[in-house]
Design a protein around this nucleic acid. Structure first.
Lengths: 205, 205
DNA sequence: TAGATTGTTAATCGATTAACAATC
DNA sequence: TAGATTGTTAATCGATTAACAATC
């Protein structure tokens, strides 16, 4: 099978989520046009994306939700488990701990870290909270894949350093500041301010 | 001045944030190479992006941080105020209320809404929390621009409906489900599950 | 001057859209 | 059969990168 473009992968994940919802509503068939309606994308793009995988649609009828979901999942999510580790159990961190839909999507939050004595040692949503200096030991033992920075920006670099020390190769940074890491480590920044401003500016001009 | 591409705008917002940090550190000069280092982009792309605006760099020297920041801000952020309204004052909502850097970036969170009696009537981080059914009245009065959905997914569509009713044209949806709105209303979805999975999958294959 | 860095034009790359054939 | 929908190939569009000239 040919290489799937990066952006397509992100959209396919959205299709999977959408198909899960449809399956729950007992909708067994769905057309690319309906998927387009729900996701806000174009029907052509959806068919193009789906055509990267072995085809499962029937002209005049559409796709069987269960079958399409399975096809997409088999390609993208088969045999994977994403093991997240979280730095910072404040409001944002807690929101991530409680985020639904992790299990069926094969995401596991395996450990959380915080500097505060009041939080460490406890379990929040079934996840144990450790002091940050134990990060390297614990992350290596639990085989963490992705580190999440949800600490105040003053501590963001410190968190990133611990992640690098722990051998993490991928970081999602919610702090509104850059973190500096070795080139082989991938950082994805999610800055709410920039998200809001770009939504505002992008149709303004 | 020619039309600036959508993606460029998002990057320029990142440059502005970066330049603000540099200015605070009293670094008066910065080269495209250094900016590339910090942001993780390429120096060519940064110069290309900056060249959309009236040029302010000096060969051999780089850019004066204050001047570059001002040039970019003047174009993108001059005379704007983005007025956010938030639905859902749980963990995620509270994190957004506390997010730093809103003021200098000309973002104002003007009102919050929640169904819980314990939260309504209070002020959180200086923002008043109202019951959801007062949304249309209050949002119109305060001239809200962007609605933020930070409620559990069971209530996401309800929140979206209130936003449409209140005349909001732009929505950021943090709930992991689609919301259906009239075509003229723009929705930006931020689904943490998809963010994590796409980071994981995109370098996997 | 030499060298570093900006800024611009052209080439490449990737992603989206359009057109249309295939098929149930 | 007619019509709706899938799936594919070609065309377009937009964004990134490469090459290089300009300049301090």
């Amino acid at each position: 099978m040919k290489k799937i473009p990066r952006k397509t992968i992100t959209r396919v994940l959205l299709y999977i989520r959408t198909l899960e919802t449809l399956a729950k509503e007992k909708r067994f068939l769905v057309s690319s046009k309906q998927l387009a309606e729900i996701t806000g994308l174009s029907d052509v793009q959806i068919r193009k994306d789906i055509s990267n995988f072995k085809s499962v649609g029937k002209p005049r009828i559409g796709y069987r939700t269960a079958e399409l979901k399975k096809t997409l999942q088999n390609y993208l999510l088969q045999d994977i488990t994403v093991r997240l580790v979280l730095f910072g159990v404040g409001n944002l961190g807690s929101a991530i701990l409680q985020y639904p839909g992790f299990h069926q999507n094969k995401i596991k939050l395996v450990a959380a870290f915080d500097v505060s004595r009041e939080k460490t040692g406890k379990r929040i949503c079934g996840v144990k909270v450790y002091p940050v200096d134990r990060a390297p030991e614990i992350i290596k033992r639990l085989h963490g894949d992705i580190g999440i920075i949800a600490v105040p920006k003053e501590r963001a670099q410190e968190a990133a350093d611990y992640m690098v020390l722990s051998g993490l190769q991928k970081i999602v940074n919610f702090a509104p500041c850059p973190v500096s890491v070795p080139v082989k480590v991938q950082v994805k920044n999610i800055d709410f301010t920039i998200e809001f401003l770009s939504l505002f500016c992008n149709t303004q001009k």
